[in-house]
Design a protein around this nucleic acid. Structure first.
Lengths: 246, 246
DNA sequence: CGGGGTGTTGAAGCCTGTCAACAATTGTGG
DNA sequence: CCACAATTGTTGACAGGCTTCAACACCCCG
């Protein structure tokens, strides 16, 4: 399997030439490990490098005055932390590693150069940011108009498809290295209530979740429960594809 | 005052040459009126034109199975409905006119051409989409981790700054042509509860709101109430600027 | 073996939703 | 310009989903 998760992701929507793959591979001028629970970028920072998640899970988040935390995105391998950083000034939110992460560092100029020289790649990178935005819209719906049961189910369905897109799902089983509190901070709930909802989903035979591994026992049922429709993720139809691909 | 709201908006973050302004003005190959409550674009559409709000208010929204509606963005003059349409296929959400709107139609190729030829403009257009994304993140926080009182106050503060950026605020007074139900659909509340919250904000002397006109009587107080910090909007500091500018 | 993080459970309370009625406002047509 | 209808705003009572608080169980790791 292609080792670069960004390439795996982009291949889901466009064919990349060997030349383009090479360009992507050479983007990361540096790779570092970040410990779980450490900030990768903190609100107010003006990083000079673009960060790419190569391995592990991270989360965008914002704090509110009373100490509450809202996670606004889960970042998995192949996701950019801040591809926009050359345009906007300071970060308006923070990004924390949820697990130990391998992070690739990319020079802003290199992104600019690629987007000048490779129009197909440029479109693909654009696509990633537009999907990020679509996901964000869905999270607004999640927190605004879905109850706890639907919201949790929906998040699980979303991560299922996204993990599938980078080849990290086999037989509807994949790593979900989140604590219930982190899930709660994403769904706008308390960890206590999240716990009860997960028990309900388990009790209904929709999922199994333990030791940071999620098994979806009933994909259709879970989607039904969350009112999930994958269109907003704009992935090419590749149902059934997964780690067994190569 | 410059008649094109997009130019007014972009000028808040970058200086535009006369040449660039001309390019922006010539983008709209057609202008049409859309009646209030009509869809400008509907989920599933694959429009061949980019839509730009020239006048009036519109809203992105998604429906959930039980009939609930979640508004994910308010669009005001100078905002694009779907600048991304050449990259993603079908619309994953709908956009409705909240008031009668004047909509500009732009050919996708013209956007592409401008972004090839005018790098300064390209950065400015990128900036608009990145700010849209930042707003979306804040709305996730709004619906997930702020209570009704904070959420409503926050939305009002945001619209205040955004309306200011296009020169439509004078003396902390501006048009807010939203029904309480529309406000509710944005904040993830019911219209009944939104009504009570508005009364509280009025009772505390923070706002006046009637006949679709909002007066912020206590800007600092309202920001405090909503936990609002304008940084995420990434507007250049232009406090005090408004319609009195020219 | 001990300790911190995480998951689980119960009871009580509050914020927000639901339902329903009515008032106020806006829009429409005669 | 008035009468009427439709939309929007307002109010009250009640229900319920979710939070809060608190205690305890579990599990991984040093």
């Amino acid at each position: 399997m292609e080792p670069n998760p960004l390439i795996r992701k982009l291949r889901g929507v466009t064919d990349l030439t060997e030349d383009e793959c090479k360009a992507v591979r050479e983007l990361c001028v540096d790779v570092r490990e970040v410990e779980a629970k450490r900030d990768i970028i903190t609100e107010g920072d003006t990083p000079d490098r673009v960060h790419l998640v190569l391995d592990g899970w991270a989360a965008r988040y914002k704090m509110v005055p009373d100490g509450g935390r809202q996670i606004t995105a889960f970042l998995i391998p192949g996701d950019f932390c801040d591809i926009h950083i050359t345009i906007l000034g300071a970060m308006d939110h923070s990004i924390a590693a949820l697990t130990r992460c391998r992070i690739g560092y990319i020079r802003g100029e290199d992104i600019d150069r690629v987007t000048r020289e490779k129009s197909n790649l440029t479109r693909a990178l654009w696509w990633t940011t537009l999907v990020d935005e679509a996901v964000l819209r869905e999270w607004v719906v999640n927190n605004g108009r879905r109850d706890a049961y639907e919201a949790i189910a929906h998040v699980l369905c979303e991560m299922h498809v996204r993990m599938q897109a980078i080849g990290l799902v086999a037989d509807e089983v994949f790593d979900l290295p989140l604590t219930q509190e982190e899930l709660a901070d994403a769904a706008g709930l308390t960890s206590v209530h999240t716990n009860r909802i997960l028990q309900k989903l388990r009790g209904e035979g929709l999922i199994e979740l333990s030791k940071r591994v999620l098994t979806i026992r009933d994909v259709e049922g879970l989607r039904e429960a969350g009112g999930f429709h994958a269109e907003y993720l704009h992935v090419a139809r590749r149902e059934g594809s997964g780690v067994e691909r190569d």
